[in-house]
Structures are given as C-alpha cells and as structure tokens.
Design a protein around this nucleic acid. Structure first.
Lengths: 153, 153
DNA sequence: ATAATTGTTGACTAAAATACTAGGTTATCT
DNA sequence: AGATAACCTAGTATTTTAGTCAACAATTAT
C-alpha cells in the first residue's frame, strides 16, 4: 500500500469540497489558493477522483466540483485508492519458491497488517472528519483540557 | 506521513527477525534471500533501524542481527518512523495566511486523521503480528470457517 | 452569437525519493 | 591468518512526485 503526500493532497482537497460544497460547486482555483496546491496538479488528482465517481464536475462559469456522493458515503480509503495505487505485490505469486513456508508467513503477516490499515481507513468517512472538526471547534471554544480534545474513533 | 514500500520492507525484515531470531542472530544475507530484497538496500535500512535501537548487530562469523528490544516493545510505528521520515509540513507555520480559518480547519482535520493512523500503528507490535500468525496457522490447520480467520485487533 | 469561465485531456519537465550497485573498512570467530 | 558478516560511503538508474504548458470542450452570462 502507498500513503504519501499525494493521498494527503487528495484528502485535503476533498475535505475542502465537503466543507464548502454546500453553497454550490467549488472551483479548483479556490482549492488551489486555499490549500496551496498547484492548480494543474489538482486537475490531475481530480481526473482520478472523477473517474472513480468521487467528485462530479460542472463546466462553464459558476461551475466547479461537487462531491460525487454524500460525504458519509466517501471513505478515506476510497480517496487514497483513487489517486494512490494500492499495490499488492509482496504475496508470493504461487511460484512455490517459499522455503519452509517462512516467506509465506511473513508475507501473510504483512498482508494482514496491510488489511488492518485498509479497514481502518475504510472506517473513516469525510462526514466523520467534518463532524469531528465541528466538535473540535466547540471544544476549543469551551477551553476544555487537552485530554478532552483528543477525539477517539 | 509516508507509508510506502520502504516501510513495508523494513516491517517485513523485522518480522523475519522476530520469527527466526530465537536460534541466534539472523544475517542480512538470509533476509535478502528469504524476502527478495537487495542486500545493500537492507544494509541501508538496518543502519536506520540500528540508530534507533530497534536492532542490534553482531559482527564477525556467526554474527547477524537481533531485535534491539522484546518484540512486544517494538511497534509498527517505531519501524516506519525509523526508515520513513514522518513529515508534518502541512500545518500552517503561523504565518497568519489562513483566510477565515478555513485552511486551518482542513489542515487540523488532516492532522487529526494523521494522528489517528499513527496511534493505530503505534498500537500494533511485532509480537502481536507473530502471535496472530501462530493463531492464523492453528486456525488454518483446524479448517475453521473464513470468518474465524479474520483476526480483529 | 460571442466572450468568459471552467472542466478535460495530454504531453512534457525538474526535482526528489526509491531501490539498487560497487567498493571499501572494521570487528570477530575458527 | 583468514573467513565472515556487520558497517560505511559514494554513486546511479528508475520511478514517483509535483508541477508547467497548451490545446480543447462545454456551459453560462452578456
């Protein structure tokens, strides 16, 4: 699996969309300015996101991007998989070259860990993050202690 | 944060160490052959792991590497952080260029997600994976149903 | 109708990270 | 002494990242 700044950009941009998409489509130019990501790079990322149905583009003046689905139906795993290839090349490809099953064991262990991470990211939606952002704001304004600010899933 | 094949290599190699370290030190040549990772590349990775105290090298004939601590005291986050820089460059650096706090909001949301992933990886130790590997083997030999094979943290 | 706006697509590029190679030095065991 | 294996340094090919540039298509406002 991969999880680099590319996926981070995509998640951040999608968050921007979720936060400002209520009042009409959001232009890539806005996101570019808000998040400090190059416009053309965003276009590339959104081409991937669009092909997976995660966003919906509206052309012409006043156009921009909407979320492709409800924010509660879009998981972080969805977004990262759309822009960041989810490679699975460590599993021995049935060549039978695993001596004593040792190689198979470590590989299956890693695969299990990889699956755990995937399930974790699959369990968080954009909606969750936005809701938690609100909570964080409320908590912050109430000046609670730091322990109270740590929101657990 | 980063989580690419580099960290995957490191985790896999450390798993190898945890699985075979009982009967003496494990050589990088063995790991290289078992896991199909280039020897010199492993040396680079282990230089990082060693500097963080995650492994302990023994020179000379019959030498190799031991785990630096008990496998229950080594988390996946430890390993990935040792070889894969844990960058934190999205947070606005106090330049006050966040208009209306919107940029700050998405950034803090991402930071929160990033922290969740970190905590998740921090909660899994090498020992956990090895134990689960045993469990998996037992379960597999008992031919239980597939649901029983999915181990949850 | 026409101009402005915005998405869509493709080709191309500089910089960085990745994965690997080559060659050496040092400690330790037999 | 000689073999072994960690340890160290430098270099390099490939891939990925992050970005630019340019042309084009669809839609809206004037």
């Amino acid at each position: 699996m991969r999880l680099s700044t590319k996926g981070r950009y995509a998640v951040t941009a999608m968050l921007d969309l979720a936060l400002h998409g209520e009042k009409g489509p959001v232009t890539l130019a806005d996101i570019s300015e808000n998040q400090g990501i190059s416009l053309s790079y965003l276009e590339q990322l959104f081409a991937s996101l669009r092909s997976k149905g995660l966003v919906r583009g509206v052309r012409g003046p006043g156009g921009g991007y909407y979320l492709g689905r409800e924010m509660d139906e879009i998981t972080i795993a969805n977004i990262i998989c759309a822009v960041d290839e989810w490679v699975e090349f460590t599993r021995c490809q049935g060549k039978g070259n695993c001596r004593g099953g040792q190689r198979c064991l470590t590989h299956s262990l890693w695969d299990e860990l990889s699956e755990q991470i995937y399930n974790f990211l699959e369990g968080i939606t954009l909606g969750d993050l936005v809701k938690r952002g609100d909570i964080l704001d409320v908590v912050k304004s109430q000046r609670q202690d730091k322990e109270g600010m740590r929101v657990v899933i």
